[in-house]
């Protein structure tokens, strides 16, 4: 698993993808750092991360996940992985964690806002860590969906479109009314912006991610029979 993780994380930064994702997230963070924290003269970074979740993940999650399995399938490199003595679970988890790793790196970079705030006041480190925990959990849920989308097609564009529609749905469905099913991953980031770690949200996000990781593993295991 760690072999795949290492290689995938490295691949993200050998191609522009890793930098693009971090760049977009930093752009979103900076915009909302100015619009929320600076404009209101507040020391709290809660809204910065909650807008980051809302707007930053729409594009970055599909960019991170669209090539995961689709590219390997198209180039035939999946033959190399699937004929190696590594378990499919290990491969899927390795890839998943690598994508989450890119998000974590972006979050580490976002510590600079905390640093800037330290100059003007005394923001709470614990709170920032809670925001970040939520951020990682929600992006993990999104990445799991994107990874699943990537595993069912060999066309990266299709995988990307499925993921981006899911992310958009996550944002707009809750606002449309009660008739629509509530399958938004934004539900897992309702209490985090207030500095609260809710068990329901943590378990929800983890279970959601686990479900789609399991789906991906099943799809990859079935490929052996179908191909």
């Amino acid at each position: 698993m760690w072999t795949v993780f290492k290689k995938e994380l490295k691949s993200y930064f050998l191609s522009p993808i890793g930098y693009v994702v971090i760049g977009i997230l930093m752009l979103v963070f900076t915009i909302f750092f100015y619009l929320t924290t600076v404009a209101y003269g507040s020391v709290d970074l809660g809204s910065l991360y909650s807008y980051g979740v809302l707007y930053g993940l729409i594009i970055t999650v599909p960019i991170l996940t669209m090539r995961m399995f689709a590219e390997e399938r198209k180039n035939g490199t999946e033959q190399l992985i699937l004929t190696s003595p590594v378990s499919i679970t290990g491969v899927v988890l390795g890839k998943f964690l690598a994508a989450v790793g890119v998000i974590v790196i972006a979050l580490l970079a976002s510590f600079m806002y905390f640093g800037i705030m330290c100059y003007f006041g005394t923001p709470s480190l614990t709170l920032v860590l809670v925001y970040m925990l939520g951020f990682v959990l929600v992006s993990g849920a999104g990445i799991a969906v994107g990874m699943f989308a990537s595993s069912i097609t060999e066309n990266q564009v299709i995988a990307g479109i499925i993921t981006i529609s899911f992310m958009l749905m996550s944002i707009f469905l809750p606002n449309l009314g009660d008739e629509f099913p509530d399958i938004s991953i934004m539900n897992f980031y309702q209490k985090f912006p207030y500095g609260l770690v809710s068990l329901a949200e943590v378990v929800g996000a983890v279970a959601f991610a686990a479900m789609f990781i399991a789906f991906t593993i099943i799809v990859m295991q079935r490929r052996k029979l179908v191909k």
């Binding site: 290689k7 180039n75 035939g76």
Partner: peptide, 23 residues
């Protein structure tokens, strides 16, 4: 495999090392 699938963004040495790790 047929068709020689390789990871395009790795160097020859990195690729062989990755295969060694996978094996």
């Amino acid at each position: 495999p047929e068709g020689v699938p390789l990871y395009a963004d790795l160097t020859a040495k990195e690729f062989v090392t990755y295969m060694a790790e996978l094996k």
